[in-house]
């Protein structure tokens, strides 16, 4: 499991547009670089990120997703917004090369 860092505001009021920041530890190897021995380093990227919101009794709904390419810096960082209308769970999914697949969950609690 790669280390993931997800930041949500501490105090959330109902109806607030909050900023969600998600960072994950990953080399994002481009496939264009060589090792010290001169061998080509094989491409290893996170290809896809997806953020869903799930509240009780409703199906999870994707509100933000991203296709990432080699030009994204190592340890991909993404910041995006969300309208916090109700309590629920935020589901973060990263998918990538070499079978990379990670899911993180955070509870969204409205004060």
């Amino acid at each position: 499991m790669a280390r993931a860092l997800i930041t949500l505001p501490v105090h959330i009021k109902r109806g607030d547009t909050i900023e969600i920041r998600a960072l994950i530890a990953h080399p994002m190897e481009t496939g264009y670089r060589r090792s010290n021995e001169g061998a080509m380093l094989s491409r290893n990227l996170i290809r896809n990120f997806d953020c869903q919101f799930e509240s009780s009794g409703k199906a999870a709904e994707t509100f933000f997703s991203a296709n990432l390419h080699a030009a994204i810096a190592a340890n991909p960082y993404l910041a995006f917004s969300f309208i916090a209308a109700e309590n629920g769970t935020l589901i973060f999914k990263w998918l990538g090369d070499e079978g990379f697949n990670q899911t993180e969950r955070r509870t969204l609690k409205i004060a």
Partner: peptide, 10 residues
């Protein structure tokens, strides 16, 4: 990168 958004993003 390509990002996909929905109105829920606000």
């Amino acid at each position: 990168a390509e990002f996909t958004l929905s109105p829920r993003a606000g």
